[in-house]
């Protein structure tokens, strides 16, 4: 493909600005509690995510991190508490509505569309930005093709940015694990989200792959200005990447602050060293 490529920061952003000034809260989680039957996954958690920051969510296995992301993008409905996104308070909403508001995510267990190519997978990320109606789509020639080409171009830049040009047309099922994670990031980026939720993007990767992924996350944050919530077990990565960290344990918040503050917090140290809970 002989296409002249623009640097990543020149990519036109299609989604309108979210209207939140840098450093102001983009998302506020207020007193959220979530239980599955008798199992309390999340208990009274509150924190905020500021526009433009990388906010890490850490904690031991089963702490409720994934559940927290699921609450944020509307996949789980909490029994108590509210979520305020871009200044709008909401309690129950469907995930596809959250997607339209500008929340994108990747999954702990890769959730790509196995039957589709890398290109098509990333193109699906732009579904919320495409809006030609059935008639134009049926006709193809004209507005629908025009729209498709615009989005194809944006997607090609993402493919370029993630350095996966060579596998553009490969069905994702055939790719190794590390590349699949990268494609999944690409699909989330394609939505040009205001808030990007990453659930263990580096799990199961080797050192080199982790370094690549860290670089992508930092670039996305700095060049697009995308706000990121990051769940990660690798403490080194968390300390390097994140601006602020929230620590969960058994569904409760036990720490919140800069990486340094959190590192020196006694509760956090206890939780990670496995000091027994008196319950």
């Amino acid at each position: 493909m002989n296409v002249h490529l623009k640097p990543i920061h020149e990519i036109r952003m299609t989604r309108p600005d979210d209207g939140i000034a840098p450093g102001k809260p983009l998302l506020v989680v207020d007193n959220i509690s979530l239980a599955f039957g008798g199992v309390k996954a999340i208990t009274n958690i509150s924190f905020d995510i500021l526009k433009g920051e990388i906010r890490a969510i850490i904690g031991p296995n089963g702490a409720g991190k994934t559940s927290m992301l699921n609450v944020i993008n509307g996949f789980y409905h909490p029994q108590e508490g509210t979520i305020t996104f871009r200044g709008e308070k909401r309690s129950r909403m469907r995930p596809h509505v959250a997607a339209h508001q500008g929340i994108a995510r990747t999954f702990q267990n890769i959730a790509l569309f196995k039957g589709m190519s890398v290109l098509d997978n990333i193109m699906t990320g732009r579904i919320t930005l495409q809006n030609r109606n059935l008639f134009w789509q049926a006709l193809w020639r004209g507005p629908a093709e025009q729209e498709e080409l615009e989005h194809r171009e944006a997607v090609e830049h993402i493919i370029d940015f993630l350095e996966i040009e060579h596998i553009r047309k490969t069905p994702v099922g055939r790719l190794p694990y590390g590349l699949q994670k990268r494609v999944e990031l690409g699909r989330a980026l394609a939505a040009e989200p205001s808030l990007l939720l990453l659930d263990e993007p580096m799990a199961g990767m080797n050192l080199e792959e982790k370094e690549d992924m860290s670089r992508f996350i930092l670039d996305v944050n700095q060049q697009f200005g995308t706000t990121i919530a990051l769940i990660e077990h690798d403490m080194g990565v968390v300390m390097d990447l994140s601006d602020r960290v929230v620590v969960l344990d058994y569904g409760r918040k036990i720490g919140d602050g800069t990486p340094d503050e959190v590192r020196n917090n006694q509760d956090v140290i206890d939780a990670y060293l496995g000091v027994s809970h008196d319950e």
Partner: peptide, 18 residues
């Protein structure tokens, strides 16, 4: 693509906005 997304993994499809 929205049909194929539903076919391949309906939960992920919903989360990307289908």
């Amino acid at each position: 693509r929205s049909w194929m997304a539903i076919r391949d993994m309906d939960i992920a499809a919903e989360i990307i906005g289908v």
